[in-house]
Design a protein around this nucleic acid. Sequence first.
RNA 1: GGCCCCGUCGUCUAGCCAGGUCUAGGACACCGGCCUUUCAAGCCGGCAACACGGGUUCAAAUCCCGUCGGGGUCACCA
Length: 536
Amino acid sequence: MSQIAPRPRTRFAPSPTGYLHIGGVRTALFNWLFAKGRGGQFILRIDDTDQQRNVQEAYEPILEGMRWLGLDWDEGPDVGGPYAPYRQSQRTELYQQAVQKLLEVGAAYWDYATPEELAQEREAAQREKRPWRYSRRWMATSEEQRRRFQAQGRQAVVRLKMPEDGTCVFEDLIRGRVEVPWAGEQDHVIQRADGSVLYHLASVVDDYQMRITHIIRAEEHLSNTTRQIFIAQALGYPLPQFAHLPYVAEPGSRNKLSKRKLKKYLNQPDFRKIYESGLRIMEALGQAVDPETFNPVVIQFYKDTGYLPEALLNYLVLLGWSLDDRTEHFTREEMLRHFSLQRVNRAPASFDPAKLQAFQQRWMQQQPLERKVQLVFPFLEEAGWIPQAPAPGEPLHRRIEQIVQYAGDRITVAGDILQFGYLFQGDQEFPYNEKDFQKRLLKPPEARELLAAFAGELEQLPPEQFHAARLEERMKQFVEERGIKIGQIIHAVRVAVTGQGVGFGLFETLEVLGRDSTLARIRRALRRVEQHQAAS
RNA sequence: GGCCCCGUCGUCUAGCCAGGUCUAGGACACCGGCCUUUCAAGCCGGCAACACGGGUUCAAAUCCCGUCGGGGUCACCA
């Protein structure tokens, strides 16, 4: 306790083989929280040692996603830093030196086995039901032997020469003491035949050279730790602290969440729900969905449909961590203040789309009106319903503010603004939902006449009195005079002016539309009713 | 299959290390009711868990042993 803890340096090291997914973000978040909450540094590194699998298009979206979430990094490929470069593909020389050293100290060896020979060994072991470990049959023990193998046309990889007995013991900050027998470890390849280096080697070298103090990563790396410790020790590096997070599981199961199982997850009702509401937003935007990114497992889905990064982070921080038995709401600052590795769970946590949705809803409710308005603008622009984001004070700004206010909780994600398209489309253009039209305007025999009569009342109302309170008063009066139920007229008016049966308060809707639009729309609806009646 | 990890309501979790205050708390979801011009929201109420077995102890969700179950990982991927 009296010892001053050094400021931690953590890293998030995605490989650009695909887009950022929920589990990856949770790992990034925990790394960020741990470092930044303790006055340390958070480093972004791109682990792109496998040229074959890298997807060039994935690199920029990863950075974008991190920025959107506000997980800012102190050092990284774009901003540089004292240990640059921060892309493994640009650090090969460093790795080659390390490989050389490992060969020199006898911790690694040149291996000339062909893939076929390896496969044979493996199959033989499997047939005899014994655990397989490479026989080192094509291990070169001298320069002379190397030349001989090369003369046979063989190509060499570099393998780790793992210990054959003893136990690797390390202290995991989350799991406690972990013990793994060395004999169970393979002689992993650290350098390919083409001279490029593999993840384990690169990762250990970089973590050391970048002075990473804490390696916080998902549990699937737990079994990688032993071989990485072996490499680090052979290279004479001090060991960092390890913390292995439980992985994020599928909704309603214990399997690891995977972005490739979208189709399967769509069978899960809550998952399907958020997917489909996202789909409606994309439809309204007239955008084709890219199956690579339009996936609730992938972070971009949330960015594209208008979630709040705060909500996502709040949900994610509780996936495997908790402060106590009741605190659920965390701002960025609160997370930073309270996060600790000691309170990270050991068991995997299932991704629950319904709970994410609940956090989003609560966060959205708390946003000041102006923030919501700002969030909604890009969607309206994208849909082509407004030319550009209006400045405060402009009539259009005022109008959208009004809509957002009246829509209230119906806007859970910013993209939900698009359900109110009828408020932005022309009086003669907005579409009618045929089912609602049928139910509210064609079927009730009195509907046409009542609607026409109410339109007459509205015409009497001077434009400056066309506000919700006054409109409601007028309708109440109208209903009373005629001895009808309010439901007989209100639904008819709603469908007439919006084209659909659902929406926010009717009087507020009329107010937003204004007198001229309201009347024009009612007239259009009346004509439509007459056409239908004439036809039948 | 080998090695490793994990096991509290459907889900996220509190409680476990330092056994009694736990007839196991909170949240989401679900169900019911209220409110209501639609859809939401809101309010009130309800259902629901210590994987199993044995041991230690006056006392076990908590400690020990075993069983079962689930998962991760076993690449010239990261």
